[in-house]
């Protein structure tokens, strides 16, 4: 059972490739990853391929239905919806793409650190986290945005801060499983410091959980960003954004549904793609979310 004959390559790159291959070999991973890649590529190249200027208004043709010139029709200002849908994810991907790694890094570090030291300090901190999580997120976020104003420079730290807090819980729980193991005791007995133990012994064992958690946080953050835009606290007009577009077009939904449908499909396909990828990643890494209590 446990005999190995051929020496294997155990480089980090190899492990990443193995996991990636596993993700792609699962239907959910293949579909999810292609959706994510499609959206990211689109966000990068869309300014070069859009058929119209996203700002160009045309009072002659407002709220026209889909036709050959305007595939998704026009909005209430006569702007091409297709163009705006293509461009509408750029802002969201940029903000969440920066905020997610920050959230996972700081939340992960704090979680691992408190998981390692344990004891009363850890208990007190976790009650603070619990209290924080019991408040509705949108309320907390709106307070900050109203205080400091909108714009990328406020949105990124705000999202990164709030979405890092639940990561603390996850990282701490994952750390607790590892801390009790003898290799951590061995490292302590050798005389390694706390930072070395975190970096060498704990992080490699918690990283898988953090990666999956990061992917899930990304999709929730996208949703949150779009919600903020929808409420008028995210992207400011005339920059195209899915959340904003839904908000604008929702008044005309009864006779011009394409104005809502386009951004909704775009946003949900990206979120579904991220969720499917996260699921496949969890399975490939052997962390089954279904078996763990949701936080």
């Amino acid at each position: 059972m446990n005999v190995t004959t051929a020496p294997q390559q155990n480089t980090r790159l190899n492990r990443i490739l193995t996991v990636l291959r596993d993700v792609v070999s699962r239907p959910s991973g293949a579909i999810g990853l292609s959706l994510v890649v499609f959206h990211v590529v689109l966000a990068l190249v869309s300014p070069l391929i859009v058929p119209y200027d996203y700002k160009a208004m045309n009072s002659a043709m407002m709220l026209t239905g889909p036709e050959t010139a305007h595939w998704l029709g026009t909005d209430h200002l006569g702007r091409d919806v297709f163009t705006r849908v293509l461009l509408g994810g750029r802002e969201a991907l940029l903000v969440t793409g920066i905020a997610t790694p920050i959230a996972v890094s700081w939340g992960g570090f704090v979680g691992i650190f408190f998981g390692l030291i344990g004891g009363r300090v850890d208990e007190v901190l976790m009650r603070v986290v619990d209290a924080f999580l019991s408040l509705p997120w949108i309320l907390k976020m709106l307070v900050l945005i109203v205080t400091f104003g909108t714009g990328i420079e406020v949105l990124i730290p705000t999202l990164a801060f709030f979405y890092g807090i639940p990561v603390i819980r996850i990282a701490r729980a994952a750390t607790h499983d590892v801390v009790a193991r003898d290799f951590v005791a061995a490292s302590r007995a050798r005389g390694h410091g706390r930072m070395t133990i975190i970096q060498r012994e704990l992080l490699p064992n918690v990283l898988d959980t953090l990666m999956v958690e990061g992917a899930m946080r990304w999709s929730w953050m996208l949703l949150a960003f779009s919600s903020l835009s929808f409420l008028g606290f995210g992207v400011s007009p005339p920059t195209p954004d899915w959340g904003l577009m839904i908000a604008d077009a929702r008044g005309f939904m009864s006779f011009a549904p394409w104005g809502v449908l386009g951004p909704v499909i775009a946003l949900s396909s990206l979120i579904i793609g991220i969720n499917l990828t996260a699921d496949a990643l969890a399975k490939a890494l052997g962390i089954d979310r279904a078996q763990k209590a949701p936080v």
Binding site: D182, A185, A186, A189
Partner: peptide
């Protein structure tokens, strides 16, 4: 403990599955 004291005393655990970090070569 001083580095010298730490080095002089070494501990071997019961179960190597638990005392070797599975992520390290």
């Amino acid at each position: 403990r001083s580095a010298d004291h730490l080095r002089k005393v070494q501990l071997i655990f019961q179960n190597p599955d638990d005392s070797l970090n599975p992520r390290h070569t």
